[in-house]
């Protein structure tokens, strides 16, 4: 939420305990297109499927998050937007944690 005009940027967030590098990517409303783009990129450069794993966490967006994201663009209502976004994240935190756990489990089971 702190990144302005960051749509489409691939932001590095660090590495996890397994040494996998973690990135974030935000694209409004073009989920399918981004998936196909990433898939094409892998094909063009012959990158093995297990080298790049795109996880869509956006399907769990709720109204708080959407409203928060909208208000964050406003100069005066940004604080309210951040609060709403934080409430939205809290609301789905359990499911996000579950998603991350699933991804990590799959990654750790790879040969």
């Amino acid at each position: 939420m702190n990144i302005r005009d960051g749509e489409g940027n691939v932001v590095s967030l660090g590495s996890d305990e397994q040494g996998d590098k973690i990135y974030a990517l935000s694209v409004k409303g073009e989920r399918g297109m981004v998936h196909r783009l990433v898939e094409s990129f892998q094909s063009i450069y012959n990158i093995p499927e297990d080298e790049l794993n795109l996880v869509d966490s956006g399907v769990r967006d709720n109204l708080y998050l959407l409203a928060g994201r909208l208000l964050c663009g406003s100069r005066f209502l940004a604080p309210l937007g951040y609060s709403l976004a934080a409430a939205g994240i809290k609301k789905i935190y359990g499911r996000l944690a579950e998603l991350v756990h699933d991804v990590k489990t799959v990654r750790s089971n790879l040969p």
């Binding site: 940027n9 691939v10 990517l25």
Partner: peptide, 26 residues
């Protein structure tokens, strides 16, 4: 030579591709 469709989001296409290229040192 390739072609693709990016709807009305040319910057998204270029940024995502550039970001992935950066990850893999292309």
């Amino acid at each position: 030579i390739y072609l693709t469709a990016r709807r009305s989001r040319p910057l998204v296409l270029e940024k995502v591709f550039a970001g992935l290229a950066g990850i893999f040192d292309i």
